[in-house]
Write a protein that binds this DNA or RNA. Structure first.
Lengths: 134, 134
DNA sequence: AATATGTCTATTGACCAAATAGACATTTTT
DNA sequence: AAAAATGTCTATTTGGTCAATAGACATATT
């Protein structure tokens, strides 16, 4: 049960923006430099978070990124859903057709329970809480 | 964040054994047939669970598998740890050397928090509770 | 008008999970 | 004692998917 690099970089990117946006929009280039990622790849990470409404962007010279919400309002579930798609630890949870056994499979309902449990626990963790561990 | 097939098959296998062990040891062949898996592959799933002490085996003719514990005593964390290894959603959680940033990375401590949260939620789910959803 | 910024689609490459194969070991039954 | 049924183990192949790069384009500020 591994996160993809999208998920890993997604959180890092958001933390980076949160830490630097007080001085104005945060540039793709500056994030890439600090986080040691290529700008190209970083763009793939940022775009879905922008589309999900977690980040807002200002274009053109002097532009860059800022958080669209307060850090306390952004949950880890939001972040991971944005960059990795809906949390779905086994395919049958969100697509019954993925397995012909799904009609009768007792394991399926079990996975649904597990999936919900994980989502709930991701929902309790916010960017804000992760930035300032108590 | 996907489970591997090891994890998926692991739970199914354990549920299958739980449901059939009342009539005696459950044969590898019979599990494979019911679950539509090859015996060969199933063996790879079962072995780590046996090594983890979740399953006990009787060898020879008439032999087979039984649960080594009551279903209520087997947590999903036990199962997944057995077949997929320690729960570790990002490499740096259990191996600092996997990333040169780990000394100073603020995201790392965040991932540790997340990882713990997931483990705790897996710990509350037992084979027994999953077999008899309330 | 120039420059700095973000946007998008397509493609490559490498790795790892998934599955198979085949030879072997052990224990019960007759 | 021998046969049959069961589990045990190591090695190998294959295929899909993630990770990363490339290059051309669009937009807004100065």
């Amino acid at each position: 049960m591994k996160l993809s690099t999208m998920g890993r970089y997604g959180l890092r990117t958001l933390m980076d923006i949160a830490e630097h946006q007080h001085e104005g929009s945060v540039t793709l280039q500056s994030i890439a430099k600090r986080q040691e990622l290529s700008q190209k790849y970083l763009w793939h990470v940022i775009t879905p978070m922008k589309n999900a409404g977690l980040i807002k962007v200002t274009r053109g010279a002097g532009g860059g990124y800022k958080l669209a919400l307060e850090p306390e309002q952004i949950t880890l579930l939001d972040i991971l859903s944005a960059v990795e798609g809906k949390i779905c630890i086994v395919p049958c949870v969100h697509s019954a057709s993925s397995c012909k056994r799904s009609r009768t499979c007792t394991a399926k309902t079990a996975w649904e329970t597990v999936n919900d449990a994980i989502c709930n626990s991701l929902k309790t963790l916010t960017l804000g809480s992760l930035l300032n561990p108590s």
